[in-house]
Write a protein that binds this DNA or RNA. Sequence first.
DNA 1: TATTGTTATACTCTATAACTATA
DNA 2: TATAGTTATAGAGTATAACAATA
Lengths: 157, 157
Amino acid sequence: MTVTPQECAGEVLETIPLIMRTIRARMRAAPPLNLSVPQFRTLMFLRRHEGASLSDAAEHLGLSLPSTSKLVDGLVAHDVLMRQPHPGDRRRVTLTLTAGGRSTLRTVQEAAQAHLAKLLTALPADRREVVVEAMGALREVFAPDRAQAAERVGGRT
Amino acid sequence: MTVTPQECAGEVLETIPLIMRTIRARMRAAPPLNLSVPQFRTLMFLRRHEGASLSDAAEHLGLSLPSTSKLVDGLVAHDVLMRQPHPGDRRRVTLTLTAGGRSTLRTVQEAAQAHLAKLLTALPADRREVVVEAMGALREVFAPDRAQAAERVGGRT
DNA sequence: TATTGTTATACTCTATAACTATA
DNA sequence: TATAGTTATAGAGTATAACAATA
C-alpha cells in the first residue's frame, strides 16, 4: 500500500487537533498550576536552555515577540519564571525558571505524560512503536532542528 | 524494541503541539477566510452532520456550550453558517453551512491539506505509511467514535 | 423539573503596529 | 541605523456561573 502525501496530510489534519484537545484539557487540569500548552512549552524550552533570551524563546515557540512577551508576563506573574537583565547587552532579557517553576514543571509534565500514557496502554506495544516512529518522522518534517527523541520521564529504566 | 506507554506519551507530548502550530498558522493564512482551527473543525463537522444542534457540535468538538455558541457567533457573522430554529423543539437550533461556507470550507481544506502534503513529500512512502497507521491508532485512543479513515480530498483516485 | 441555549465575566493566545531603549 | 523588547489594540478561544426559554 502506497500512501500519498495528500492522504497522509488528510489523516494528520483530522487527528492532530483531536489529540491537542486532550493534551490541552489535561494540562489545564493538572495541579499545582493550570498551565496552558504554550506556557508549558515555554517552560520546557527554558529548562533545556537556561538563560535564553526572549527572542530565543519566540523563535523556538514559533510566536511573535509581543506574544512571547505577554506569555512570559503571565509566567512571571505566577512566579515560575524570572526576567533578568542580560549582563553585557542591556537590550536583552535573560529568562530563568524559578525553583518553584522547576518543581511545577516537573509535576505538570509527569501528570500530563502519565495521563497520556494511561490512554496509550490501550494500544499493543507494536502499535505504540509505530506511533513513536511516526512522531519522529513528523518532527523531522515539522521541526528539523528538534527531531531527536523527546525527553523521557518515566520511560524505560 | 518495546515502547512503554510513558515513552510513547513523551513523544506525543513533544510532537503534537509542534505540528499543531504549523496547522494553525497555515489555516489562518489560507484565503478566502482566515479560519481558526476550531472554526475549521466546526465546519467540517457540520458538513458531515447537516442540521446538527449546538449541543451536537459542542460534544463533537469537546467544548463547552458557551464556547461553542460563541464560536458559532463568529461563523454566522462571517456568513458561512446559519443558525435556524429547530422545527418541533424551539429550544434547539439547527446549524447549516451556507453555500458560501461550503465553498470556503472546500477551499481552505484543500489549501491546508496541500500545504501539509507538500511538507510530507519529504518523507519516503513507507514512512508516510507509518504516519497514517499511527494517526489511526491515535484516533482509536483519543476518539474511539471517529477512528475510521479521515476524509480524503485529493487522495488516490 | 430538566434540557437547550445565551449572556456575563474573566482569562489566555495571537497578531500587527507603534514605541522605547540600547548597540 | 539596526536590534531587543514592550505597549497598545484587536479578535479568537476557553471556562464557569447565572440566566431565559421551552419541554
